[in-house]
Design a protein around this nucleic acid. Structure first.
Lengths: 142, 142
DNA sequence: GCTTGACTTAGAGTTAACTCTAAAGATTAA
DNA sequence: TTAATCTTTAGAGTTAACTCTAAGTCAAGC
């Protein structure tokens, strides 16, 4: 059993347009067509789409995702490259997580700041809570 | 004391081109110019740039960052909107963090998979470790 | 005073990732 | 069998966020 492009799109949360675009970009060399020319997505193809989504979701550009797909199509000789790519991507994700953590601390500070401002209707927050100034400087110092 | 556009750019890890672009887009209404027309960034302006970087770094589009800046320029009456924006952005960051956590689990699985593949020089990983199949299906089930 | 490098503007060009259109062919349900 | 709803292609258009160019102005060091 297989799925039409519309069904496949719905299953992975993309549009049929986007899947065709990916195909055109060479990201879906594994997708076969019926005798009348319609794309037929298998369960295995859906798995591929999920891996693509995972890599895209962690910020890997489509070009590099294509590189990975190409390695997969090339065979066992590219296993080291693929392993390396995932190790690099793991590193990238962990760096991003750290960055987001820092940004979140700043956002939390701003929420605290504006909550006080909203309570009093003005921005004299540091007059009311001088200790917050040190906290702010620490958060934004780099 | 104030900084030239090049100095300011270096301080926040952007280019002078990008700062001019931000200015053109209305993100830097607070930056004043010298009598001869050169932008002069104050310490306070650098703080603004860091907040912009924080919001941009958590995925807020420049248009919405401009909206925030506009609110700031408008005065105390927009404090509730600004508070609300940061609360929304906090929510967004936390959703993203959860998403990245899921992607990371998939990437870690792939690393495990390709490490075994690399060790044996082939992709018969699930023949050697049938229990990994269940793990894979759990990770990619949604 | 002169050179060198940074700065100014307006505006054009780039890149990634879609997003949509048109015209034609395929599939499904009544 | 016919209408409605897919799907196909090629190719144009869009959006966000830069990125660069040209032609001229300004500032700092010798």
């Amino acid at each position: 059993m297989s799925y039409s492009i519309g069904e496949a799109a719905k299953m992975v949360g993309l549009t049929a347009h986007t899947l065709r675009f990916y195909d055109k970009e060479g990201l879906l060399p594994f997708v076969k067509k019926t005798s009348s020319g319609l794309r037929a997505f298998t369960e295995s193809d859906i798995e591929w789409l999920k891996i693509i989504e995972c890599l895209k979701g962690t910020g890997l550009p489509l070009k590099q995702i294509k590189q990975y797909i190409d390695w997969c199509m090339e065979g066992d000789s590219t296993i080291p490259q693929r392993l390396n790519m995932f190790i690099e991507q793991k590193k990238h994700v962990e760096e991003q997580k750290a960055k987001w953590e820092k940004h979140l601390a700043k956002i939390n500070f701003k929420i605290k700041y504006y909550e006080d401002a909203a309570k009093h209707g003005d921005l004299n927050v540091f007059d009311r809570h001088p200790e917050l100034l040190k906290e702010k400087n620490k958060l934004f110092e780099d």
